[in-house]
């Protein structure tokens, strides 16, 4: 992998303020990402995966305000605290986004060719005609048949897989250095999922992009990710090489906690069968466990490690 990380995230904490509630979906997240590398962010629904990537770039649903602290260095530029215009100039140009549901993410009233071309117009300073040629190129690049016809079609005339290809074409139109894909295969047929994932990897290596793959599908992680970050209740386990997680990943019973109230101790405590008093006292730090080379923020395993030593 290339040496200098393109993305350095440190102590990223995000509070979301709506009219009635405050939640902390992201709590002290740390990771780095280099070019051509793929980081998979996995976790259950509501564990803060999407917000981690979208909120710092100003992508929020209407009526939600994000209070962001910590540090995000992208291409040695500080994103936390940047004004909206700076973030907007990065979106689409340096960072491309792919969304979960291609059925609703494309504008139903506009031809897909225009939706792709406008990104080239905006960020590459192309004329309408040049942008159209660029859109045609992109449509070919994402592997759609009859590219000339596709350009003129509307989203409702395309299948889910094709629409996600259009979405990918939009995301890479300005050749960004980072691609954020939010569950890009979740809404698709199983057979199409593999194709889209392969396409993403192929385009990533061709364009030398870094990619963040948000998912809850461990199969996707195994196939595509170099590194994995598991998130739970806004916190994460230290990102590591993907082979170390692989088959040893196990689920827990129950549901994730509500993030409205601050969690003082271990976020897993209410669902964990092995929990001890120490789990609820303070947020457990990462400490060694009995298994050499594996650390965990878990008092139970940490105490065992001490006893063994």
């Amino acid at each position: 992998m290339s040496s200098e990380p393109i993305l350095r995230v440190k102590d990223l904490t995000i509070d979301l303020l709506t009219a009635h509630t405050v939640v902390r979906p992201v709590d002290g997240v740390v990771y780095e990402l280099s070019r051509r590398e793929t980081l998979a962010i996995v976790g259950e629904s509501g564990s803060g995966k999407t917000v981690t990537c979208f909120a710092p770039l100003g992508l929020m649903p209407v009526g939600v305000q994000a209070d962001i602290s910590g540090s995000i260095l992208f291409d040695s530029r500080q994103l936390v605290g940047s004004d909206n215009e700076t973030l907007r100039s990065l979106r689409g140009k340096s960072i491309g986004f792919i969304f979960q549901d291609p059925m609703s993410a494309l504008n139903p009233a506009r031809r897909v060719g225009r939706q792709i071309a406008e990104v080239a117009e905006l960020h590459l300073g192309m004329t309408a005609r040049a942008a159209e040629t660029r859109a045609l190129e992109l449509i070919k690049m994402v592997g759609m048949s009859d590219p000339e016809i596709r350009l003129k079609q509307y989203p409702h005339e395309l299948s889910g897989g094709l629409r996600q290809r259009v979405m990918i074409a939009i995301a890479i139109a300005a050749e960004p250095t980072l691609l954020v894909a939010d569950e890009p295969t979740t809404a698709l047929d199983v057979t199409v999922q593999a194709q889209i994932l392969r396409l993403l990897k192929e385009i990533q290596s061709r364009m030398n992009m870094a990619m963040i793959l948000i998912t809850h599908d461990m199969g996707v992680v195994a196939g595509a990710a170099d590194r994995v970050m598991v998130m739970y209740a806004g916190r994460h386990a230290i990102p590591r090489k993907q082979d170390a997680i692989g088959s040893r990943f196990r689920g827990l019973p129950g549901v994730p906690p509500i993030l409205g109230a601050p969690i003082t101790g271990c976020a897993f405590m209410p669902r964990c069968g092995y929990a001890v008093d120490a789990c609820g006292e303070r947020r457990p730090p990462f400490l060694p466990t009995a298994v050499p080379g594996v650390s965990a923020a878990c008092p139970v395993l940490n105490i065992r490690a001490k006893e063994c030593a």
């Binding site: 100003g58 992508l59 649903p61 209407v62 907007r88 100039s89 990065l90 979106r91 689409g92 140009k93 491309g96 986004f97 969304f99 549901d101 609703s104 993410a105 494309l106 504008n107 139903p108 009233a109 506009r110 406008e118 990104v119 905006l122 960020h123 979405m167 939009i170 995301a171």
Partner: peptide, 28 residues
């Protein structure tokens, strides 16, 4: 229209609010 998911897509392209209103919302 501005609460629709395609507006989030338009924002992710880096379009300004005014051009989103004109290009994405008006046709709808």
């Amino acid at each position: 229209a501005m609460a629709k998911p395609y507006v989030l897509t338009a924002m992710s392209k880096g379009l300004s609010r005014t051009s989103i209103l004109v290009r994405d919302a008006i046709p709808n």
